[in-house]
Each structure stands twice: as C-alpha cells, then as structure tokens.
C-alpha cells in the first residue's frame, strides 16, 4: 500500500480513513517543516500543521486532479493558513535558533557549533526580511529540497519564473550581506571555504 500513488489514495481518502492516514504519513513532516520556517515556532508549527490536515480531511473529497500534485494542494492550504496567522499576529516570523541545529562539517566542536549558529542567526534574519514569496521559495528549495518545477506547481508559476525569482532573491540576499558587512554588522557571517 506504501507504493500506491497519491492520487489513488486521494480518491479513496474521502471514504477510507486508512487511505487518508497514508497520505498524512507521507506529507506531515514536509508540511510541518515548511510551516516551522514560516512561523519560527514549534508550537505554532504543530498547531498550524494540525489545521492543514483537518482542512484537507474536510475537503479531500472535493480535490480534483488538475495536473497539480496532492502535495502542492497541501502546501497551498499551509501557505494560506500561515498568511492568516501572520495577519492575525501582525508580526514578522522569528526563528528561534536555540532549537535549531545548523549542520556543518565541524558542528561537533562547541566553538564550531557556536560559529555556525551565529552564521545561521544572521542569515535567517536576512531571509525573514525578504518578501513573503521569496521566503516561501527559499524554504521550499532548501528546507524542503524541492525542484524548481515542483516549487512552480506549489506557487502557481512556471519553472522559468521560479528560476528567475530565485536568482533575484539570491542577488538581493547578497546585496544585503554586503550592506551588513559595510555597516559592520553580521559578525557571524563568514566565508568559510576549505
């Protein structure tokens, strides 16, 4: 049953709890991951993930195969709920780095770990200053490891548009890093080649 395509499960999910359970098992981690980076808090991520799947359960019978994967449908529900959450809170997301382990080759050493955390803190600060769609793109690309085509399906854009948006995002991030450097901030961000 584990190799059954999502769309077959979706057709059965409206009447078979086991089919919806399998869809849930397949996607819950990715949806949680996405929401965590958009909200910056584990509790909020859990609460919103629960709401995503409750909404999906209510509307799974109405899901129509329009060439968009089920995961993209879930991401859109998650995106809408996160947008509402930000609107309700009227504040920018804050990612608490104390719960966030940045994996680097030398992360076992306390000094390397502290340094990696500093890098992460500075970069995440820059990322969360980006417009919402750029944040979404970076999270889907790096935290979710999705391809441009998959991101395009989720964000309702072409692969080319995503590629272009990605380069503009990288470029603006680079400018921000250089600006921080010029202002003497961003002490943790370093080039650590080799």
């Amino acid at each position: 049953m584990t190799d059954v395509p999502d769309l077959d499960l979706v057709r059965r999910a409206a009447t078979e709890p086991e089919a919806f359970g399998l869809l849930y098992e397949r996607h819950v981690r990715r949806i949680y991951n996405y929401i965590y980076y958009r909200t910056g808090d584990h509790h909020d991520a859990e609460d919103l993930t629960a709401r995503v799947f409750q909404r999906a359960l209510r509307h799974v019978g109405a899901f129509q195969d329009m060439g968009v994967p089920f995961s993209a449908w879930l991401y859109r529900i998650a995106h809408n709920l996160v947008a509402n959450w930000h609107r309700d809170r009227s504040r920018r997301p804050v990612v608490p780095l104390e719960d966030h382990t940045v994996l680097t080759p030398g992360s076992q050493h306390p000094e390397s770990l502290a340094m990696a955390r500093e890098v992460g803190e500075d970069l995440l600060e820059l990322v969360r200053r980006l417009p919402e769609e750029r944040q979404q793109l970076l999270i889907l690309k790096f935290a979710e490891r999705l391809s441009n085509a998959e991101i395009g399906q989720i964000m309702g854009r072409t692969e080319g548009a995503i590629k272009s948006l990605y380069h503009r995002t990288l470029s603006s991030l680079r400018e921000e890093v250089e600006r921080m450097q010029a202002e003497g901030r961003g002490a943790g961000l370093e080039d650590r080649e080799g």
Binding site: N33, L103, V119, L123, L138, F142
Partner: peptide
C-alpha cells in the same frame, strides 16, 4: 547558496 544550504535544514516534528 552554501550558507542557505547549511542554515535551512529540514526539521522534524
């Protein structure tokens, strides 16, 4: 990109 890869790592519920 290299920094982003190291910072935006998947988190598990």
């Amino acid at each position: 990109e290299g920094w982003l890869q190291r910072v935006l790592i998947p988190v598990e519920p």
